[in-house]
Structures are given as C-alpha cells and as structure tokens.
Design a protein around this nucleic acid. Structure first.
Lengths: 119, 119
DNA sequence: TAAACATATGAACAGTTGTTCAAATGTTGA
DNA sequence: TCAACATTTGAACAACTGTTCATATGTTTA
C-alpha cells in the first residue's frame, strides 16, 4: 500500500489514482494564487459595473464616477485594481485619463458568470 | 441640455449618449450583486483547488481533505459555499457524501481565468 | 442500542476589502 | 507662475472572509 493510501471513508482503493491525477493536473501554487486574485477582482459589483461601461466605450474617470453615481476617488481606487489585474488599460489625454478594456477574456468571464447566475 | 449632462472634464457632449447606453445594457442591481457573489466564490485558491479535483472525479469530503492536506472541517465549509453557488452538487452514499461539478460554466470560467493569468 | 466513522455547523479569531476623507500629483491655459 | 481642473494616493474605519476548534448530526455495523 502506497504511503498516500491513508485509510479514509472506505474508498481508499481509489486514492492513489486520484492523487496521481491531482498532482498531474493541479496548477502550481503561484498559478492558483494568481487565479484567485483575478477572480477576486470580479467579485465586487462596483468593478463589474465599471467593466460593463467599458464594454461600450472608452471613458474617463469622472464619466465613470458620474455614470455610477460614486465619488471619483472610489472609482479611481477600483480602476487601480482593475489595471493591476490587466483587465483595463489607460491613456492620458490632457487632464483626463481614459480607460478601456485590455483583454478579451473579460467579456467571456463576465458572460459565463451572468449565464450561470441567470439559470 | 439634459439633466444628466453635468459638466465634467470637458467631454460632456458624450455623456447623454453614454448614460443612455449604460442604462440600457447595465444588468440590474440584483444581477450585479449575484454575479459579484459568484465570482467571490472563485476568488479563493482552496475553492479553485477543490474545483480542479472535481474536474477529474466525483469525490467524498475526506478524499478532498486528504488530497489538499486540509482539515475536513475547512473543506466542508468551502463545499457549502460552492454548493450554495450551485457550482457543485452532492450525493450521499452511506456515511460518505460525494461531491461533483454541477455546471459546465465552471470549466469555462476557470479556463478563461487561467488563460488570462498565463499571458 | 452503543460505538465508530463521515460530515456539517457555529463561534471566534486574525487577516482582508471597499469606501471616505484629506492631501498630493499632474496638466492646461491665463 | 498661478489657479483651476482631473486624477491618484494613503490612512482610517467598518464590514466581510477563511480557518480552527469544539460540538452536533447522520449513517453503519457490531
């Protein structure tokens, strides 16, 4: 009996195989951490709102603040998080900074999440 | 000038159009909240690990605890969250409870998240 | 029924998160 | 250079989250 076949709920004949598969297919710790960090970014309705606006247009910070009826500071903090995750990019034009989507995965992830919730 | 065209960063000629689009396409508050709640569930590496195991097989709680080297209680708490979000389903067989994926969106969302992080 | 096993649950704790407020930075035009 | 505007940043605070520990619930078998 292999080391990892510790007795557990009387199904331990499958443990060795399971553990083998898990070790082979499980992403490494850094990847798992990065994925969790990414999904945390989607886990806030303010940020989802921002993304929905950016689905339609490239907009400046004060436009976002106004459209979402929130302070410019709160929006700016959230944009920083979205930018750090490389979900949005920014471009300065004079006094204003315009934000837009940086990535096509955003739409897919949001769409799948919405589909799941709608069921 | 429409009520919502408040002056803002000298681009207010586009505000009316933007606000119109946003009102039309933005999901309602409940939907946004539910979507954020769903993504929060993906925003924890323990839960992502659990999902990766369930990609491969239907497993019982103690198998998960063993494969992830965590306490049975911690796993059970996380399974409850995954079940509440309808990402996993469970089936009792004697003393054991077996968990499996409940939904095909899970794979897509995880895959897209991983792709984004890998870039 | 009692003992052993598998799982679920509630309280508690440290750690994290989103907003607000005040202040700093960066940009333009007078 | 100065004033006005747009944005960013840091500290602070309440609210939330994941794990642990102790205990409860559910199931099987002796």
């Amino acid at each position: 009996m292999a080391i990892n076949d510790v007795e557990c709920c009387d199904t331990f004949q499958t443990h060795e195989e399971l553990l083998k598969i898990v070790r082979a297919k499980m992403p490494d710790e850094d990847m798992l951490y990065d994925m969790a960090e990414l999904f945390k970014v989607f886990g806030d309705s303010t940020r989802i709102r921002i993304l929905y606006i950016l689905f339609e247009a490239e907009v400046c910070v004060c436009d976002l603040a106004q459209a979402l009826n929130m302070t410019q500071s709160a929006i700016s903090h959230q944009l920083k998080i979205l930018k750090q995750s490389k979900l949005v990019k920014s471009r300065r034009e004079g006094k204003s900074v315009f934000y837009s989507l940086a990535d096509s995965h955003v739409r897919t992830i949001i769409a799948q999440g919405r589909e799941h919730v709608e069921e």
